[in-house]
C-alpha cells in the first residue's frame, strides 16, 4: 500500500506531533507515504470566505502536483481543514463549470494540468477501510487496557462530503480505538465544533466552545480526548488554560488518535510526539509508554 502524503502547514508547525505520529504509525504498518513534493498551502477555510476562487486555485495546484507525482494514487491528508478544502475543490469544479474554467485557466498559466482524478482521503479512512481493524488489532503489542477515551472527530472530516462515516454520529475512530484495547466513552459532542476558527476572531466564544468539549469529557471521567484534527488539538490544548480561567478548572489532555496507535504498537512517547502536549497526557499514558530497550525492541520489530 502506498499513498501520496499532504501534510499541510499545521503539521509542520503547531501540529508537529500529528505528523510525527502519522508517519511512525504508517511506517509501523508498512504503508508507504511519499510526501507531495513542493506542496503549497491548501487555501484554508478562513481565506475561502474572502476569495473563494483563488483558494480553489491554491488547492488545485496541490491536486495537480499529486496527479503528476503519482498518477492514480490516493492522497492522504491528516489535517481536517486541508482535507475539507481539497475535497471541496474536487466537488466544486464538478458542480460549477464556471469555477472549473477559472481554476483551469489559473493552472494553465503555471503550465499545470489537473484531471480531478486524485482521491483526497483521511488517514482514519485509510486505516479503517483499506487496512482494516483486524490488521490493526494484530499490530497491537501493548493494549491500551483501561484507558478511557472520549472520541472527538470535530466537524470537517465527516462534513459535508462524508465518504467513510456518518456525518453526525461517526464511529470509525471508536472502533479503531477499541481495536487498540481502549475503552471508548459515549461522548455526545463528538462532532460539535471546537470553536477553533473563533479563537482568533471572537475569542470569548471560541473559549466557551472549547470549555464545553473539555468539561464534558471530564464529567464523563475520560482520561483523555482523542482527535483527528490538528486545529482542534491546538485549540483544545493551547487554549485550555484560558478556557479554564474563564469558566472553571478542567484538565483534559487531548491527543491524536495516531499517538495512541503508536503507543499500542509499542512506540515510545517521544516517537509519537507526546512531549509536545501543553496539557500533558502522560498521567494516564505513562503505563503504556515503552522505555529504553523495550521501546527500541518494539520499534525494531
Amino acid at each position: 500500500m502506498q499513498y501520496v502524503y499532504y501534510p499541510g502547514c499545521s503539521l509542520k508547525g503547531t501540529g508537529r506531533a500529528y505528523e510525527e505520529s502519522v508517519l511512525a504509525v504508517f511506517d509501523k504498518l508498512g504503508i508507504q507515504l511519499a510526501e507531495l513534493e513542493d506542496w503549497n498551502c491548501c487555501g484554508a477555510t478562513a481565506y475561502m470566505s474572502v476569495d473563494e476562487h483563488r483558494s480553489f486555485a491554491l488547492a488545485a495546484r496541490n491536486l495537480a502536483l499529486a496527479e503528476r507525482q503519482a498518477p492514480d494514487t490516493a492522497m492522504v491528508v491528516p489535517c481536517s481543514g486541508c482535507y475539507l478544502t481539497l475535497n471541496k475543490t474536487c466537488h466544486i469544479v464538478k458542480d460549477y463549470p464556471e469555477i472549473a474554467q477559472e481554476v483551469k485557466t489559473a493552472l494553465d498559466r503555471a503550465g499545470l494540468e489537473w484531471k480531478n482524478r486524485v482521491e483526497v482521503r483521511h488517514p482514519l479512512d485509510i486505516l479503517v477501510q483499506d487496512l482494516g481493524l483486524d490488521t490493526i488489532r494484530q499490530a497491537v503489542v501493548r493494549p491500551l487496557k483501561g484507558l478511557k477515551v472520549a472520541p472527538y472527530y470535530g466537524c470537517q472530516i465527516v462534513r459535508p462530503y462524508s465518504t467513510f462515516d456518518h456525518q453526525i454520529y461517526p464511529t470509525s475512530m471508536d472502533h479503531l480505538l477499541e481495536a487498540l484495547g481502549a475503552t471508548v466513552m459515549h461522548y455526545p459532542l463528538k462532532t460539535k465544533c471546537c470553536g477553533g476558527s473563533m479563537t482568533g476572531t471572537v475569542p470569548e466564544v471560541g473559549k466557551r466552545l472549547s470549555y464545553i468539549l473539555l468539561n464534558e469529557a471530564k464529567k464523563r471521567e475520560a482520561d483523555l480526548m482523542a482527535t483527528v484534527c490538528p486545529l482542534c488539538q491546538f485549540n483544545l490544548d493551547a487554549y485550555a488554560r484560558d478556557a479554564a480561567h474563564a469558566y472553571g478548572p478542567v484538565n483534559m489532555p487531548v491527543v491524536y488518535f495516531t499517538q495512541l496507535m503508536g503507543l499500542a504498537f509499542g512506540l515510545s512517547a517521544k516517537q509519537v510526539g507526546l512531549q509536545r502536549n501543553i496539557v500533558s497526557a502522560m498521567g494516564s499514558l505513562k503505563k503504556f509508554c515503552s522505555t529504553g530497550a523495550a521501546g527500541a525492541a518494539a520499534t525494531a520489530k
Binding site: G13, T14, G15, N40, N277
Partner: peptide, 30 residues
C-alpha cells in the same frame, strides 16, 4: 504565555521559514 508554551513543546515556528520552490508557478496561478 501561550507563545512560551509552544516554544517549550517545540511547536513554535515564528522564525522558521517554510518556502516552496515553485513560487513563480504559484504567483502565475494567483
Amino acid at each position: 504565555r501561550l507563545g512560551l508554551d509552544l516554544i517549550r513543546t517545540g511547536r513554535f515556528s515564528m522564525f522558521k521559514w517554510e518556502r516552496i520552490e515553485g513560487r513563480a508557478e504559484l504567483n502565475a496561478i494567483l
